[in-house]
Design a binder for these strands. Structure first.
Length: 274
DNA sequence: AAATGAACCTGTTTGC
DNA sequence: TGCAAACAGGTTCATT
């Protein structure tokens, strides 16, 4: 569910809601079985800590604490963070509550439990194990046409799988991979190593454009994703191929096709994408 | 090493 | 109508 724009939307909302600077008054853990165990005894030590800053790296959300620790959150497929008013009853899949000193409750909900919530202390170089092998941010200068061209030489996997690999570039998931490739005019099945340098440049620009526009729209809500206030992401209306099998391509009118790559639904226009 | 597929979960939609 | 299968935005592990 949540790709980079959704996580950035959540991070921005938490900043706007002034969560940084608040103290955590109380912690409630209701379910310990996530991607990694959510250890209640450890999380409860967060009581009394202050949130210093909210950051995002790839699809991870980082709450930096005044203890020097970082609460690392990943929303998996169905994770959401909500800021509820005091005394709101928890839902069936609300696994973790952080009650702030102003009474609001930051709630991590995740029905499928592919998400992650762990406390980490960065090493002397400021590094966190889970983040160590991640590729450059797509909106940074490090992600360039030259970079993509260089790392894709000799690679035979479909370019869609390649750009969804978090060791190549982070933040691009199943929706934005299809949308970016449509924008770049590149067929998702094309082996990554066959992309020319100009086409790599075009793809990099397309990824940047799509992700930026999605962030500006507050992300994409298909069914699960919601902002911290429960609002829906408006980028769903801007999708040109994702979830549109059989419907006319907005550019050329030919029917959008669906195929499966790496076990994931993939949408493209057979006319516009070569 | 790189590519592929299955597994981890629950909820919702689809198809017979 | 009812039930089973298919499917869902991510990551990780095992197998070729």
């Amino acid at each position: 569910m949540p790709e980079l724009p959704e996580v950035e939307t959540v991070a921005a909302a938490l900043r706007r809601a002034r969560v940084a600077g608040k103290k955590i008054r109380r912690v409630v853990v209701r379910c310990e079985k996530l991607r990694q165990p959510l250890v209640a005894a450890e999380m409860e030590k967060l009581a009394g800590r202050k949130v210093d800053a909210i950051r995002r790296r790839a699809k991870y959300l980082l709450l930096e604490l005044d203890s020097g620790q970082v609460l690392l959150l990943h929303l998996g497929m169905t994770g959401t963070l909500r800021l509820d008013e005091q005394d709101t009853a928890p839902g069936r899949h609300d696994h973790l509550d952080l009650e702030l000193d102003d009474g609001r409750i930051l709630r991590f909900r995740d029905p499928r439990r592919f998400g992650l919530a762990v406390l980490r202390r960065p090493d002397e170089n400021g590094r966190i194990a889970e983040l160590a092998a991640l590729a450059p941010e797509p909106l940074s200068d490090a992600f360039s046409g030259d970079y993509l061209h260089r790392i894709s030489r000799g690679r035979k996997s479909p370019v869609k799988n390649f750009i969804m690999d978090q060791r190549r570039v982070v933040g691009v998931g199943n929706i934005y991979a299809s949308e970016s490739l449509f924008r770049a005019g590149i067929r998702p099945t094309l082996p990554a190593g066959k992309l020319s340098r100009p086409r790599c440049q075009r793809l990099v620009e397309a990824i940047r454009d799509i992700l930026s526009a999605a962030i500006a729209a507050g992300g994409t809500t298909i069914s699960d994703f919601h902002g911290v206030d429960g609002s829906e992401g408006a980028f769903v209306r801007a999708l040109k191929v994702y979830g549109r099998e059989g419907k006319p391509c907005p550019e050329c009118g030919r029917p959008i096709r669906k195929t499966v790559l790496g076990g994931r639904s993939t949408f493209y226009c057979p006319g516009c994408q070569r």
